[in-house]
Nucleic acid binder design. Structure first.
Length: 737
DNA sequence: CAGCTGCCTG
DNA sequence: CAGGCAGCTG
């Protein structure tokens, strides 16, 4: 915050005015300011002219007809007419300038005295000079110094100045239309007309917290918004296309590989098939949506996932055969006695290199695509992809095998959909499991599960099962595995599996995890980025990554708020150390009963959760968010009713099939599997709706804090939450009855 | 100051 | 839904 300090210095009174961040506080004033500022600007530009005409025409300045009308109105015989035609969008401005020029005899210095310059003559003058000095310095410095100047020269000179000035003025106008406050400051007189002057503080807050517009105004923006969305969708589609292309290229390389591989080593087939099969359904999911028609048979042979799979199987076999530590001296062993193995080794090395370079190029390419516009996704999604790059680099120098382009295309997305089956049993549970399920939270320590069997609730396991584990048959066991196998050090196993899998993740996730992946996407990305910070993926400490990920990462999530002693990895407590998606679901259902639960109440109703400040505030935040949504809906429908001509609150009632209820139910009870939404909730909702209705009708919404009165009413309408919600298993009991 | 709430934003 | 912030309350 640049002005954080100065903010602190502001008087308390000023701060309290923050309350006036009402729903529609700035709506009227902002547009009024803009209009006034605009009018003022043009009246300043053309004090003799009709202000309204000018303003109107400028608004319409893209409209050729209007421009022409104005031009006629303003027109005096002018030799520049033709010269200006190439700038249709600027004709109004040009006319204004012309007008001024003619009045002042068309001589250069007169510009400074014209109305146009009244708000910033210095700037304009300077600009004109600096601008035209590039073209014709003498003219600028001494416009009068050439009494013998020919008419042509005069024309040219004025034309240049005109262009410069025209561009300048157009810029100003453009700027005005984007920032009314700037325009406002431009004219001292205007402040007198505006009753409330805008203090710096105010404008700062205006920028920082934009007010929501009422329905009516919002609708005018919605088209714009949807257009933007469309654009983004298109970009996404293109990216997808790119990935598909890369996959195609990969399959080509894969074929090459098989030609070599199958001829040299066929005994691995059985070994590979297991994981191939397991991989298959995974990849089918990804491909299911590919418009490229491919038969399953084709996929069997050419799937990129299998390709990598085989490569790794080969590598692993080599390692075992040679009985050597994995990551050391790979290159030295290239000249082993067994030529067949050494060839495979070489191939493996090559492949690793290929993966390395390909990854970096993929990252570069996609980043380039994304970086053209500021996208939040970018830092979230792609940094993880760089991990393999860093790690692969350990494996030695580059074997120039394909062109860079080929590498890019071939390996671009292989790692992404491939959950690293070979090592998956050890590594994947940590990453995939963790990232799949939890919104902001410390999930129940899975050591509890592996050590003492399934959790009491029984729901957790399924929730945290990754798509991979579902298809490969291993159930999520623990992310604190005993890292007994030396293979753990292999570059492939880093937690990257999860973040990268999350890239196409939504598309490939198994059905049951779909909404969870969506719900927790933000967490996942945050987790990954956290992880990046805390574990820079040094190849020297590979074993630490998988374990370090979940716990230290999660701990850092709560930062200093977290009581670290509560989170000992080996505490083995039966309490949840975080809030699960089921807790969220439960909280939502509880909202049907209570809108303003106290923290004590939350503690009693979430007795299976180990409470700390972090958890408490998260829960409270949930309810705050619930309320926010609730009240937004209420206001929306109240306004809608008013627009629809409803005049009496009697006409407003909420039933289980009314639109408003459905919206609420969709939010708090998405699957509609909670069938006992209490009648009381409908009543409260109806009361709320009527409160909003009355307040708006009474015009109270001009008061910035008009909603607070409503909140006060509603908060008294909480009812008792049924006892059953106190049970940790209440969801099962509630939803399966 | 802590705890809570609401507003805005991402 | 979460983070950040501001304001209110006790």
């Amino acid at each position: 915050m640049p002005d954080h300090d100065s903010t602190a210095l502001l008087s308390r009174q000023t701060k309290r005015r923050r309350v006036d961040i009402g729903v529609k506080r700035t709506v009227g004033t902002a547009s009024a300011f803009f209009a006034k500022a605009r009018a003022t600007f043009f009246s300043a530009m053309n004090p003799q002219g009709s202000e309204q005409d000018v303003e109107y025409s400028v608004v319409q300045h893209a409209d050729g007809e209007k421009s022409n009308v104005l031009r006629k109105l303003l027109k005096r015989a002018n030799s520049y007419e033709d010269a200006m035609m190439p700038f249709p969008g600027a004709t109004i401005i040009s006319q204004l300038l012309k007008n001024n020029m003619n009045k002042n005899g068309g001589t250069e210095p007169s510009f400074q005295a014209s109305g146009l310059s009244s708000t910033g003559s210095e700037v304009h003058q300077e600009d004109i000079c600096s601008n035209s000095s590039r073209d014709s310095p003498p003219e600028c410095l001494s416009p009068f110094g050439r009494p013998t100047m020919s008419q042509f020269d005069m024309d040219r000179l004025c034309d240049e100045h005109l262009r410069a000035k025209r561009a300048r003025v157009e810029n100003i106008i453009r700027g005005m239309s984007h920032s009314p406050s700037v325009a406002l400051r431009g004219n001292e007189n205007e402040r007198e007309m505006a009753p409330q002057s805008v203090s710096p503080r105010e404008s700062y807050r205006e920028n920082k917290r934009k007010q929501k517009l009422p329905q009516q105004q919002q609708q005018s923006f919605q088209q714009l918004v949807s257009a933007r969305k469309e654009q983004k969708r298109e970009e996404r589609r293109q990216l997808k296309q790119q990935l598909e292309d890369m996959q195609k290229q990969l399959r080509q390389l894969q074929e090459k590989f098989y030609q070599i591989y199958d001829s040299t080593d066929s005994e691995n087939d059985e070994d590979g098939n297991l994981s191939e099969d397991s991989m298959h359904s995974e990849i089918l999911d990804v491909r299911a949506q590919d418009s490229v028609g491919r038969s399953d048979n084709e996929m069997c042979e050419l799937d990129p996932g299998q390709f990598i799979d085989r490569a790794r199987a080969l590598i692993r076999e080599q390692e075992i055969a040679e009985n050597k530590p994995k990551r050391e001296g790979n290159k030295e062993r290239d000249q082993g006695p067994n030529s067949l193995h050494s060839e495979g080794k070489h191939l493996a090395e090559t492949l690793k290199q290929e993966l390395n370079t390909a990854m970096s190029q993929v990252v570069d390419t996609v980043v380039k695509v994304f970086s053209s516009k500021p996208s939040r996704q970018l830092p979230q999604v792609f940094p993880p992809l760089q991990i393999p790059q860093a790690r692969f680099a350990v494996n030695g120098e580059n074997h120039n095998f394909h062109t860079a382009n080929q590498r890019l295309q071939c390996f671009g997305d292989v790692i992404i959909p491939n959950p690293l089956d070979t090592f998956g049993t050890m590594q994947m549970p940590s990453s995939t499991d963790q990232t799949e399920a939890l919104p902001l939270v410390v999930r129940k320590n899975s050591s509890d599960q592996s050590a003492s069997g399934p959790p009491a609730g029984g729901h957790h396991q399924s929730l945290h099962q990754s798509p991979l584990s579902t298809t490969t048959g291993f159930t999520t066991s623990s992310f604190r595995h005993p890292f007994s196998l030396p293979l753990m050090a292999y570059p492939f196993q880093n937690p990257l599996g999860a973040p990268s899998a999350s890239f196409p993740g939504k598309d490939r996730a198994s059905p049951e995890s779909l909404d969870l992946t969506r719900e927790t996407a933000s967490l996942r990305t945050k987790m990954s980025s956290h992880h990046m910070n805390h574990h820079p993926c040094s190849p020297a400490h590979p074993p630490s990554t998988a374990e370090g990920l979940s716990l230290s990462l999660i701990k850092s999530e709560c930062g200093d708020l977290q009581d670290m002693s509560d989170i000992s990895p080996f505490s083995g407590s039966a309490m949840q150390e975080g809030l699960s998606p089921n807790h969220l679901k439960k909280a939502k259902l509880m909202f049907f009963y209570t809108r303003y639960p106290s923290s004590n109440m939350l503690k009693t109703y979430f007795s299976d959760v180990k409470f700390n400040r972090c958890i408490t505030s998260q829960l409270i935040k949930w309810f705050s968010n619930f309320r926010e949504f609730y009240y937004i809906q209420m206001e929306k429908y109240a306004r809608q009713a008013i627009n629809d001509g409803v005049t009496s609150t009697e006409e407003l009632s909420i039933t289980r099939d009314c639109e408003l209820y459905r919206a609420l139910n969709m939010h708090y009870n998405k699957a509609n599997d909670f069938e006992q939404v209490p009648e009381r909730f409908l009543e409260v909702a109806q009361i709320t709706l009527r409160e909003f209705f009355n307040a708006i009708i009474a015009g109270k919404d001009v008061d910035p804090s008009w909603k607070k009165a409503i909140y006060k009413v509603i908060c008294k309408l909480d009812s008792e939450v049924p006892e059953i919600f106190k049970s940790p298993n209440c969801l099962q009991e509630l939803l399966h009855e």
